[in-house]
């Protein structure tokens, strides 16, 4: 059943020439108007709040403080001149946001020392955020304490992208009356051919094995496309999508040797 999607209806899928980030960047030299760019930025923030929040938590703030700081950070970003100061040379939305966050936390720390922090203005309601996109990311327990905040941020970022694409895929199946197919097959999106029990899936769905193979292949292809679309919204040029994905894969694998 689809809970309440009207207000958070999927935004039009990202064609490259209108990616949100490139829109924001192009507003710098006056190519697009500021209001549109701000709206695009607000939407990106709504999507990518979790990495920010996880980063703040990892920096040792209590959950309550981390919630407040995340809100404050977004308000700062949206009200201030974050995107006006964004320099296309300086990198992608992700890295820029992470740098801005580090600076923000330093300032916030200074303000807190001076006893001035506070303010109850909220960017969006915390409950809405939670409800909009529940996350099911799990990482090794040890990682919580051992990974640096920057890596937690990147992993969270990666998960946000991957889950966003997965949700889209689910919506697409649902709108075609094939939610059952999604439920049954989505667990095998990354499995190697020989690991998938096509027979069992065929049995569950009451379909032929060959059909299942075909449709799983298509689901994978579609998922990859949706994932690339999601990434495309955060980069300036289409060529960067692949680089960004590779960067995130590397971040996930980083330091694996050290842990072992």
């Amino acid at each position: 059943m689809t809970p309440h999607t009207a207000r958070n209806a999927p935004e039009s899928s990202g064609h490259f020439h209108t990616t949100r980030w490139s829109l924001i960047l192009s507003s710098l030299d006056g190519q697009t108007d500021e209001a549109q760019a701000r709206e695009a930025l607000a939407q990106l923030c709504r999507i990518y709040w979790r990495p920010i929040f996880a980063f703040v938590c990892r920096k040792g703030h209590s959950e309550q403080d981390a919630q407040d700081l995340t809100q404050d950070f977004f308000l700062m970003v949206l009200k201030g001149n974050f995107f006006l100061r964004a320099d296309p040379e300086r990198g992608r939305f992700r890295s820029l946001l992470c740098t801005a966050l580090q600076n923000f936390l330093r300032d916030a720390h200074a303000k807190a020392q001076a006893g001035k922090r506070g303010g109850d203005q909220h960017f969006v309601s915390w409950d809405d955020w939670m409800a909009e996109a529940p996350s099911r990311l799990t990482i090794p327990a040890a990682a919580l304490e051992s990974w640096p905040a920057e890596r937690i941020f990147d992993v969270r970022w990666a998960a946000t992208l991957a889950e966003r694409a997965l949700r889209r895929l689910q919506e697409e199946c649902e709108s075609r009356d094939r939610r059952r197919v999604f439920d049954a097959l989505s667990g095998s999106l990354t499995a190697e051919r020989e690991e998938v029990s096509y027979d069992a899936l065929a049995r569950e769905l009451g379909a032929g094995t060959a059909e299942i193979k075909r449709v799983l292949h298509r689901l994978r292809q579609r998922y990859r496309q949706l994932l690339r679309d999601a990434v495309a919204e955060t980069v300036e040029k289409p060529e960067e999508v692949e680089d960004e994905l590779r960067y995130l894969v590397a971040a996930l694998a980083a330091g694996r040797e050290r842990e072992q």
């Binding site: 996880a54 990482i139 090794p140 999106l189 990354t190």
Partner: peptide, 30 residues
């Protein structure tokens, strides 16, 4: 935000341990 596992299975393909829903390996998806 970070539900953690005591001993999550390592992904047989890429040997990372982060997963999202349906047990999907995050790294392999990306």
């Amino acid at each position: 935000s970070l539900a953690a596992l005591h001993a999550p299975g390592e992904c047989p393909h890429c040997h990372t341990q982060s997963r999202i829903g349906h047990g999907l390996c995050l790294s392999c998806l990306l």
